[in-house]
């Protein structure tokens, strides 16, 4: 698990909006029964048709157009991005299922205004992420605050799973299950 508290990284910029999970990882790669090794196929169809498509060879931050991760619920999409070294994705809006899946795999989705995202997409500058203080810093030392619930922040900083929380309620859950109709 990489440290989320503070880091600076180059960015990968994909300005297109509405990037769907079929584009992130096409269905042909869903025949796997493990989570590993999907990084080399990330965006493979876009890569095929665009020789200038950015390489996922180190940068930890992806900046992209709004509604990123729409479509299929495949968790293979965040698995592929994580395997391709991505820890943070910045956009003005994320699709619900993708956002939840990303957070559960140690990826931090950061929502900033469309204007700020467009600035980062245009400049391609390095960015610094500070999850403890909930800020993004650009190359001119301007800070941009982002929102994240205390719960989600703690989960990422301490590498917790929802299971750590759910397990505490096993007695209540068992009682509920017994009285609940099937």
């Amino acid at each position: 698990m990489k440290d989320f508290s503070l880091f600076t990284s180059k960015t990968i910029c994909l300005p297109q909006k509405d990037i769907d999970t079929d584009l992130i990882i096409p269905a042909e790669f869903l025949k796997t029964t493990t989570k590993e090794g999907l990084g080399k196929h990330v965006f493979c169809n876009l890569r095929k048709t665009d020789s200038n498509f950015p390489k996922f060879n180190g940068p930890r931050i992806l900046v992209t157009g709004k509604n990123f991760g729409c479509g299929s619920s495949r968790e293979h999409a965040p698995w592929a991005l994580k395997d391709a070294n991505i820890d943070v994705i910045i956009a003005s809006e994320f699709a619900d299922i993708f956002k939840g899946n990303a957070e559960k795999n140690g990826i931090l989705p950061i929502i900033l205004t469309e204007k700020t995202v467009q600035k980062f997409l245009t400049s391609g500058e390095d960015l610094s992420i500070d999850l403890k203080n909930k800020t993004v810093k650009d190359s001119e030392n301007t800070f941009y605050s982002f929102e994240i619930t205390d719960f989600a922040q703690k989960r990422l900083l301490e590498n917790l799973s929802d299971m750590d929380f759910l397990m505490k309620f096993s007695t209540e859950i068992r009682r509920f299950d017994t009285k609940q109709k099937r």
Partner: peptide, 22 residues
């Protein structure tokens, strides 16, 4: 509603999910 594979494992193990109300 649709969920990811991590959540599938949570439902398998606890029959619950941690969810924010939409």
């Amino acid at each position: 509603f649709g969920i990811g594979t991590t959540q599938i494992s949570h439902v398998m193990a606890t029959q619950t999910l941690l969810l924010e109300k939409p």
